[in-house]
């Protein structure tokens, strides 16, 4: 099923943002839409988007490869992306990431055995005054979690396990 068939309203809204002769601009929002359910951009989604925008599959793949929030590989349902850049690291982010992974029994970059969470270290997320912090990227979009502790994070993971959704 193509994106236009699956999400007709969203696709129309996206296309309306850009001049009709520049529909290539829609590639980034369409890629977000494509990886919403699968957690990554599939080969068939690449083809679908390329056809819709009249560009090549290689063009679309180059966008997936360039930008770090698009993924061509599946991971956990939620990607937990901990900022470890300088300002956060000055406030204990590296130790937080290490302890979190230790508690989950995984290495940085790995996924928990139940497939729920992949923990990654990432570049600055513009929340330097609220370290340690991370974002979750998953089926509910991207959400920030700030001033975190390992205990609070483990509670969040338990809640995700129970509800299957990320709640406010």
């Amino acid at each position: 099923m193509s994106l236009a068939q699956k999400y007709p309203n969203e696709v129309n809204q996206i296309m309306a943002k850009y001049p009709p002769q520049h529909k290539r601009s829609a590639v980034m929002p369409l890629l977000y839409l494509a990886q919403r359910e699968e957690g990554c951009v599939t080969k068939s989604a690449l083809k679908d988007i390329a056809q819709m925008l009249e560009i090549t599959e290689t063009d679309v793949a180059s966008i997936v490869g360039f930008y770090s929030l698009y993924h061509d590989q599946k991971a956990g349902k939620y990607r937990m992306q901990v900022c470890t850049d300088l300002p956060c690291a000055l406030r204990g982010a590296d130790r937080f990431l290490e302890e979190l992974c230790g508690n989950l029994g995984i290495q940085v970059g790995e996924t928990t055995a139940d497939g729920l969470v992949t923990v990654e270290g990432v570049m600055c997320l513009a929340a330097c005054d609220k370290a340690p912090m991370f974002q979750t990227q998953g089926p509910d979009g991207i959400r920030y979690h700030e001033n975190m502790t390992v205990d609070k994070t483990l509670e969040l993971i338990e809640a995700l396990k129970k509800s299957g959704r990320e709640v406010e």
């Binding site: 943002k17 601009s25 980034m28 977000y32 360039f66 930008y67 770090s68 698009y70 990432v122 600055c124």
Partner: peptide, 10 residues
Amino acid sequence: IFTHLGAGAY
């Protein structure tokens, strides 16, 4: 006015 989201690139 329209919003456009990037995707993680400084």
